[in-house]
Nucleic acid binder design. Structure first.
Lengths: 189, 189
DNA sequence: TGACAATGACTGACCAGTCAGTCATATATT
DNA sequence: AATATATGACTGACTGGTCAGTCATTGTCA
């Protein structure tokens, strides 16, 4: 749907309040009235968009449980995907948008917490516990704070949208160092 | 100045675009015209506010270089101060506000990068290098990414404003686990 | 032709920014 | 000291422009 894409662009670039529906319509190549055939009003358009935008994130999150190789490899592949497909792209702006508008749209913060954050953290915690059981991770208190595992990814997202211009950040290299801290220095075959 | 405080409250609560100067004036107990005796327009009011709000942060940042005890202790004290005085208070919202509005106010992102982020990271890097030289930290690639040291603090700030209601986060405990990852498990005397 | 989708001109609310006027205080004059 | 005059911080009603949301009209397709 062209409208959804157009609205996403505008909301990401200007935030909720400063986005004009005239601009969304123009970008989508429809008349303003058409928007109201699909959405009740600006606010529900915004909320539905954020929800929609998350569907791909969610499917990634609940993706492959790592039966095969080491937990570290699984986490590393996961993080690479996340950074390449989210932190370095338009989708990262969605996360920034949620941080920006969340407090003013409790419904969005709630939804995001329920559907993404709590599930994602639970998944991370499971991974961490598995790694501890296997002896890949020593620090067993890490399972209490799965946020620590993903913190650099969040920071990468923020960095890209605010400071990439001033100082580009090699998010993947950073994340590998982070994993070295957690799993111990990688064995150089 | 009552105006500054009032404006801060409103901007933090509603963001730039959705804040009404009538509300700022009412909250400050002055007439709207008075605002324009102190600020050129809404935009420069906002920018000056953000700059002003950072002064206390900056002075903290450039505070005591840790000559005395271990680097870990210094970082731990620093992080505790940061979390208690920033992440858990109104000031945390300022950081969120910068994340939210930064892309639309390049001047603010620039200023913030120059005055806070680059200086802060340089300080962190120096600390990390000292700790590596002293043998407190093994992972010597950490000096390339001082962001990793502070990432949990950033995450804590965001968590507090978005999700504290759903799941309170013990940011200090989290940070200690983080430090255990970096410095190795703490010796229990 | 009838049913439905799409349009875009229009309306009314809202709000940043203005400015003619007020008034408390300071300065000058007698 | 008493009165007159000047100053400028402050006010808030007002204006002009903007924009969310509406709806009478037009286009489309079976």
């Amino acid at each position: 749907m062209a409208i959804i894409e157009a609205a996403m662009e505008e909301f990401v670039a200007r935030g909720f309040a400063a986005t004009r529906l005239d601009d969304v319509a123009k970008r989508a190549g429809v008349a303003k009235g058409t928007l109201y055939l699909h959405f009740k009003d600006k606010e529900s358009m915004f909320e539905e968009l954020i929800r929609t935008a998350l569907v791909p994130l969610i499917s990634r999150m609940s993706a492959p449980p790592p039966i095969g190789g080491s937990v570290r490899d699984a986490v590393e592949r996961f993080a690479e995907t996340f950074i390449l497909e989210i932190a370095s792209t338009r989708r990262g702006d969605i996360i920034r948008l949620i941080v920006a508008e969340g407090p003013r749209f409790p419904a969005i913060a709630d939804f995001y917490f329920r559907e993404v954050v709590s599930k994602g953290l639970a998944g991370m915690r499971a991974l961490i516990e598995l790694a501890i059981a296997r002896g890949e991770i020593r620090e067993n208190k890490l399972a209490q704070f799965p946020q620590l595992l993903v913190a650099p990814a969040i920071v990468a997202v923020i960095w890209q949208s605010l400071f990439a211009r001033h100082a580009p950040l090699d998010a993947i290299a950073m994340f590998k160092v982070h994993l070295d801290l957690i799993f111990g220095e990688r064995r150089t075959t």
